[in-house]
């Protein structure tokens, strides 16, 4: 009886041993040589596979970098400045990294303060909704609030609050521009993270119309223009204030004086959003 058991154990061990030998033999024949440079670059890259560099994922970019020395090494926006410095060391190059850019939703019209033409009751999808009379809000430049951009964001930087306001956290955003291309209203734009402020409105309607349909839109009053006094920084074109990022004149005063407060700081948008959320909720009640 015990002999039978031992034979079984022995046979299984033997077969396992020979199969293992066979496999190690085969894997020796079919070894794959991996370029050590590719491995090093892949380690350095952030690994979010956002596609901002234009290559299929971080592995694709690392592969391309190792094969072709003419490819720019500053294409990775999530990696930022520190990554370019490391890649300079590794590949013996001398590249600079331009300022980090982040995406911003250029609209703050929420359910409480923007008037609606109708109530959309269909699929939870911006593109679908914008096919019906360009969305439910009266302002046709407005954010749909259905969050197509949230679905494509690789790092979950885009938030939506209880009033269906969609906003992007600059500290998390990696600047891959996926949300820019998916937005049916084209109201997500890229701004430099150190640019100070941005105008959270895309409406080219005249001031009177904006006042009627949305409490948080640019009414083209030109107060910001007068306070700043610098036409190369902020200027009202076609009924909409536009901030230029060629210089960094402080827009703090303009932001405070703005009657509809649509000039919003880029970095601390979270504080701003939470602050105004409570006010808007009170208005709704």
């Amino acid at each position: 009886m015990i002999i039978d058991l031992l034979v079984g154990v022995l046979l299984l061990t033997l077969i396992g041993f020979f199969l293992g030998l066979f496999l190690s033999f085969i894997s020796n024949i079919f070894t794959i040589k991996i370029d050590p440079v590719v491995e090093k670059i892949t380690e350095l890259l952030p690994g979010v596979n956002c596609g901002a560099c234009g290559y299929p994922g971080c592995a694709g970019y690392a592969d391309a970098l190792s094969k072709n020395t003419n490819i720019e090494i500053n294409l990775c926006s999530p990696g930022g400045k520190s990554l370019v410095e490391k890649l300079n060391l590794l590949l013996g190059k001398n590249s600079d990294f331009s300022d980090k850019i982040v995406a911003k939703v250029f609209c703050m019209g929420d359910d409480a303060i923007a008037s609606k033409d109708y109530d959309f009751n269909g699929e939870d999808d911006c593109l679908t909704m914008s096919n019906f009379f360009q969305g439910e809000k009266t302002c046709k430049y407005s954010c749909e609030g259905k969050g197509d951009c949230i679905k494509v964001c690789p790092v979950e930087a885009i938030k939506r609050d209880s009033l269906n306001r969609v906003w992007i956290d600059s500290s998390i955003c990696v600047g891959c521009k996926r949300c820019v291309s998916v937005c049916p209203k084209n109201i997500i734009k890229m701004v430099p993270v150190n640019g100070g402020h941005f105008v959270a409105c895309s409406s080219h309607n005249d001031g009177k119309t904006v006042r009627e349909i949305c409490k948080k839109g640019c009414i083209a009053c030109k107060i910001c223009e007068k306070i700043t006094g610098d036409p190369t920084r902020i200027v009202v074109i076609n009924n909409l204030a536009e901030i230029k990022y060629t210089n960094t004149v402080d827009l703090k005063n303009a932001a405070i004086k703005c009657p509809t407060s649509v000039i919003i700081p880029i970095i601390d948008q979270k504080v701003f959003v939470l602050d105004t959320l409570n006010k808007d909720l009170q208005k709704k009640v």
Binding site: L12, F22, L23, I26, F30, I32
Partner: peptide, 22 residues
């Protein structure tokens, strides 16, 4: 059963190594 699983696992590993290379 245990013998068969051992053999099948080895064959799958074998295919995996070859596919990875070729």
């Amino acid at each position: 059963i245990i013998f068969f699983i051992l053999i099948i696992a080895s064959i799958v590993q074998f295919i995996e190594i070859i596919l990875k290379k070729q």
